[in-house]
């Protein structure tokens, strides 16, 4: 059906653009502020956007602040959480879906229970448990609870059940064991679901605030969400440095998102429908 270029069409175009401007304005503003000299007199909002610009805030944040350390912590923790989630969840899911052993349905029911446990509501006993294990203020303490949720495992069980048994039996007849089947057949066939689980794990870890806030005590272990407020808190009047720090923290993700938008959205949506 061909769309007629009516008044309505143009009105909707204008609404779309107006909303886009509203959505992007705070981000562009933060970017513009980060390019200003500190201490500039601001008489009207326009002054935030006008020259003279400077890039000098960036090397200052990158070289003289903890923001890069926190950025690296956030990235490393997110990557480790993602890899371990994929490995451990898919191994367990494979056993439940394909290694027909006695008790597999009991395990599945036990893991289903986890879907009903909201992490936020068990944060106090979790802290006590991790503290008893002497893992507070350590990378292990920050990472391990993040890979213990069963959501990803359930998604993977559903996916693995769809892999035909004949494929796996062929490998077994050739003398391959469960491990061979898993690495040679199941994992390569599961790329779409691995992508979905990876995106959810990575984003979940990247945005996790409450747990790292409790678990990381020393500044060198902070992640970005925990570090940025402590940094911004030291600047009460001027926004230039805190917003430059915000930009340093966000630009890598913004660029990754814009470049891989299609793949990221596809991965997110298949998980949302399957989940």
């Amino acid at each position: 059906m061909k769309q007629k270029k009516t008044m309505g069409h143009w009105a909707l175009n204008i609404v779309s653009i107006l909303l886009a401007v509203i959505f992007i304005a705070p981000i562009l503003w933060a970017l513009a502020v980060s390019l200003q000299h500190e201490g500039k007199q601001i008489k009207s909002v326009v002054d935030w956007f006008t020259p003279p610009y400077t890039l000098s805030n960036y090397p200052d944040i990158i070289l003289n602040s903890s923001v890069p350390t926190w950025l690296i912590n956030s990235l490393v923790i997110a990557v480790v959480v993602t890899v371990l989630t994929v490995v451990f969840s898919s191994m367990a899911a494979y056993a439940i879906a394909k290694l027909h052993f006695k008790g597999s349905s009991m395990f599945f029911l036990y893991f289903l229970l986890g879907l009903m446990v909201p992490g936020e509501a068990t944060i106090v006993p979790l802290f006590i448990t991790v503290n008893q294990m002497n893992l507070i203020d350590s990378y292990a303490g920050m990472i391990l609870p993040s890979i213990a949720g069963s959501m990803n495992l359930i998604i993977m069980v559903t996916f693995f059940k769809g892999i035909p048994n004949e494929l796996l039996e062929a490998v077994e007849i050739d003398g391959g064991g469960a491990a061979t089947t898993f690495f040679k057949i199941v994992m390569p066939l599961s790329k779409p679901i691995i992508a979905t689980v990876s995106i959810f794990s990575f984003v979940g870890s990247w945005n996790n605030y409450l747990w790292p806030l409790l678990c990381a005590m020393s500044s060198k272990l902070f992640t970005l969400p925990v570090g940025i407020p402590t940094f911004a808190g030291t600047y009460t009047v001027d926004y230039v440095k805190p917003l430059t720090a915000s930009m340093v923290a966000s630009l890598p993700m913004i660029i990754i998102y814009i470049v891989f938008e299609k793949q990221i959205v596809a991965g997110m949506m298949s998980g949302a429908v399957k989940g």
């Binding site: 451990f88 969840s89 191994m91 367990a92 494979y94 056993a95 439940i96 290694l99 052993f101 006695k102 008790g103 597999s104 395990f107 893991f111 229970l113 986890g114 446990v117 992490g119 068990t122 106090v124 006993p125 979790l126 006590i128 448990t129 991790v130 391990l144 609870p145 890979i147 213990a148 949720g149 069963s150 495992l153 064991g177 469960a178 898993f182």
Partner: peptide, 27 residues
């Protein structure tokens, strides 16, 4: 077969039990 399956399940099972289920009871 059971032992092989257990080996695949165990790493996740342990983490899940300690960090997801146990805090509910401990709480």
């Amino acid at each position: 077969k059971f032992l092989v399956a257990l080996a695949f399940i165990l790493p996740f099972f342990i983490l899940y039990t300690i960090f997801t289920i146990w805090p509910v009871l401990q709480g």
